[in-house]
Amino acid sequence: MVDKSLELFDCGHRACGGCGPALAARLIMKGAGANTIVVASTGCMEVFSTPYPETAWKTPWIHSLFQNAAAVASGVEASLKKQGRDEKVVAICGDGATFDIGMLCISGAFERGHDITYICYDNEAYMNTGIQRSGATPYDASTTTSPAGRNSLGNSRPKKDLPRILAAHGAPYVATASVSYPNDLMQKVERAVNTPGPCYIQIHTPCSTGWGFEGSKTIEMGKLAIQTGLWVNFEMVDGEVVKAKKVVRKPVEEYLKVQKRFRHLFRPQPNTEEIAKIQAIADKNAERYGIDIKQKPQE
């Protein structure tokens, strides 16, 4: 059972007000518990939580490089196994470290079957370096390296499907979660750390600075992503989707129009053609994961 009162991530960290990843750190640790060793990648969370000597982490924590957390975690796990120790090993890394630069190490660690949980806090761009696009940036999002312009509608590629890639490695448990559904998030982390073998959780962590919305709306933004079908919370066991959060879907505009990274799609007037393409992504998600709640026809 998750102990919600457990606080393993301390006050005084330097995240922006309303930071999705900071909330994710707290919730992840509640789910993982105190008997956990955290392996971090370079990124926002690492920087806002560990300027020497002011660490916010109350459990053992190690950071090496941007792209090697899965390999460092492999070594930690091997050492613990050799010593007969029972701590859980949890890597917590951003989407750039996970989707892009860390893929080699992650693929190796998952193929070798280390007993680790790898968690990606996905804020959908390189926020620490100033909001550059990553392989996790959604279609048409304007970032500092995929800016909307006269010849550009923002990021030209859809988000990489990393959960399925890691499920294909034979991961026994793969899940997506959102800071906007904290109980679900904590339970998934608890399940992952107690599942032997390499498990993966991808957590949607809205970033007010990078996406362009008020910090008070972080939870609301995560909910809208789910309610529009642009983010799906699901669980995969041994490669099969066993559960997905069902919603009464809203049109994608409701999510897009409240974020600066998509505002070029609405100026000077709504770009219906592009918005329809994003709606198609949501529709495909809905079909693939069966998330639509069928509403009763009106009498």
């Binding site: 060793i37 390999a71 070594g75 091997a78 010593q83 190490c105």
Partner: peptide, 27 residues
């Protein structure tokens, strides 16, 4: 009597050594 990690690259070889050393093992 050692745990032998057959890593996928030299980059991971040394990274795993770092992790194992930090966890208290001779590597």
């Amino acid at each position: 009597d050692a745990d032998y990690i057959t890593v996928e690259s030299e980059f991971s070889a040394l990274s795993a050594c770092l992790g194992a050393s930090a966890a208290g093992s001779r590597v």
